[in-house]
Nucleic acid binder design. Structure first.
Lengths: 359, 359
DNA sequence: CGTTAGCACTCAGGAAACGGGAGTGCTAAA
DNA sequence: TTTAGCACTCCCGTTTCCTGAGTGCTAACG
């Protein structure tokens, strides 16, 4: 059933007050905060109703009310007012994003740190990586014992490796080798690169020393590792300042959970609220997150891929501020990575796409 | 003045007991632990003496003794017995190191995690990077708007970048361009690459669209970022399990300090004890580390460069076990990275040196 | 002189007792 | 339906008390 207007205002007042104070809020406080023209007794009656409906709860009799997950959910879905970012905040974000020249991993780490700074909660980033295939192979001859393998993958990622070998070869061999790779390895998913294929390539080149398998090994390894999505967490320590994490054990469990990137990657899901998804307390799949909330914003990482940036905090979180900030950051990232259609101001006139070559 | 044999045994007993229990140790406990044939009263007298000399202190009258930094120092320098690693420990380490094929950053992150697991303390790694210069430039023509820059740096590091440009060029131009770079940019430190130099290179190539400055920009950026040493921290959450970090504020300060890689890089110093350096409490330069100890082991990162791996923990730390473990890890890393003179068993017969190209 | 038994003293830290105060739910009147 | 009034609940910070581990000192002993 739909809540009355007054109850909504009361619920909002409770949620927002609790977000600020972290303490159960009583009828008088609600009264002054919601700006209603009634008495605290009336509020009390309404609070009882909201309690019964499951939006609020009492830590104990004769304490104020705190929102339940259901209460937060209603707040996030209907009651929350959109927050505008201040100019200094937007400035900070655009500056950080536009000024960035280093590699993808570094960029995401920096963006995560920025999100932590802006929200004061631990931030996480997840960079989705679609299974890549080879687009092109180049072998650069250095000397008779060394060469560089340069792989261009789908998604315009470039990977390289310098190889020293205990036997010598000629520049010409390398040229033939790369020709064979470009002819028969390009476009194959990693599991289609069989040892048969490698052997036949070896024969085609006339390679008797194993050069082919060195290159093939690197190709396979690269394709395998590029498939895994990169996760990144920063600012875990901020949890310790929050009253809900004064218990070191609680804090330890969550921080520990966050520090395993496996767990972070598992957070992937489709954002629902505009571009922002809010997971409140028990809505989280992971047990370790059941007392916390996660806010995730997705961004366009180019080539039809999506990445996520989010923060983790107590259920008592300033959802509207956090959502606004993450959404703005995600927007900036989309512009930066998503094909570069509309680079943020100051990004420069050249369309330079670094990929995640990790320079 | 030199301590008597008995006092040394007592000091050792106190330190080791305190390391295990984290509680002030009394005369009776010392007696049973040190295996001395005297009474607790005698121990008490000795304790008073050790107290006066500054090796021990009392948290309050009528409590047992805990070691001071001076006490720990003596223990580390003279009293500590070398710890042998169990076979399963050495196995674990060698396996981790030898099985590793991914890039340098990833390797160090994994090694850090392993150190955390083995010691249960937060671990850090610092990869020193000597100021690099260019050894060679290759430009790979992809299509008339795109090419890959491949830079080979001193230290056999390879960096790359895929560039898309809004104007077209020919393969021939790229060839001339790389020739010019190889002729006049190789061997220069980053600050000697002036705009004059770039302009004259531009003229030599006959480049009117700015190709040269794109490449030069990447060269400069690469040289600059490769100079910064990479630091990495893992397992911070482990601090929260320790009795000395039950105060969330204390834990927060330290974890926060650790999460800034600037601070970590600042730890660099020359190991003194074998290959292992121990910094006890106030011996640390940083205020935030004054209540903690840091154990660092250095490893040979190849090309005469050194890296560090270490852990941070309470002054009450099992120094001998930690030192032994770190030392062994560092040894393995040295073999792995240090020119590959003696690769650990199972590393394979090929001398493949990935450098830190971050594949 | 070093060692030891005995003893009074100290003090941290947990348990129990206490009191204030914020906030409730209920009742009865407007 | 709202409101004033009021008794009641229960958290939490404070105080008090007590126990026990461990000390330092003294005096006797070999």
């Amino acid at each position: 059933m739909e809540l009355s207007e007054r109850r909504k205002r009361i619920l909002r007042a409770v949620v927002e007050e609790y977000i600020e104070s972290a303490e159960p809020v009583g009828s008088k406080t609600v009264l002054s905060r919601a700006g209603l023209t009634c008495s605290s007794a009336t509020i009390r009656n309404e609070l009882v109703a909201l309690d019964k409906e499951g939006y609020l709860e009492q830590p104990h009799t004769s304490a104020g009310r705190i929102p339940t997950a259901k209460g937060y959910r209603l707040y996030v879905n209907e009651l929350m007012r959109e927050r505008e970012l201040t100019e200094s905040e937007t400035d900070k974000i655009t500056k950080k994003l536009s000024g960035h020249a280093a590699g993808h991993d570094r960029l995401m780490a920096d963006v995560g740190k920025m999100a932590t700074e802006l929200t004061s909660y631990p931030a996480l980033t997840i960079s989705a990586a679609a299974p890549a295939t080879l687009k092109r192979v180049d072998l650069i001859y250095i000397d008779s014992n060394s060469f560089i393998i340069v792989l261009l993958l789908t998604g315009d990622t470039v990977k390289n490796k310098l190889v020293h070998l205990p036997f010598s070869f000629t520049e010409n061999t390398l040229r033939r080798l790369s020709a064979v790779f470009n002819a028969s390895f390009v476009g194959l998913p990693e599991d289609r690169i069989t040892s048969d294929l490698i052997t036949s390539a070896e024969r085609a080149v006339g390679d008797t020393v194993g050069l082919t398998s060195v290159v093939a090994g690197f190709v396979i390894e690269t394709l395998m590792t590029s498939r895994g999505s990169g996760a990144n967490v920063s600012g875990e320590a901020n949890l310790l300042k929050l009253p809900e994490f004064q218990d070191p054990d609680k804090a330890h469990k969550l921080i520990n959970y966050l520090s395993d990137s496996q767990n972070i990657s598992a957070l992937t899901g489709t954002p629902d609220f505009g571009d922002v998804k809010v997971l409140i307390g028990p809505e989280n799949a992971a047990l370790e997150l059941r007392d916390s909330s996660v806010v995730l914003a997705s961004y366009d990482a180019g080539d039809g891929m999506r990445g996520l940036i989010g923060v983790v905090g107590p259920t008592r979180m300033d959802y509207s501020a956090v959502a606004a900030k993450l959404s703005f950051i995600a927007g900036g990232l989309s512009k930066l990575l998503g094909g570069g259609k509309a680079p943020p101001a100051g990004f420069g006139k050249l369309m330079i796409k670094g990929g995640d070559n990790d320079v």
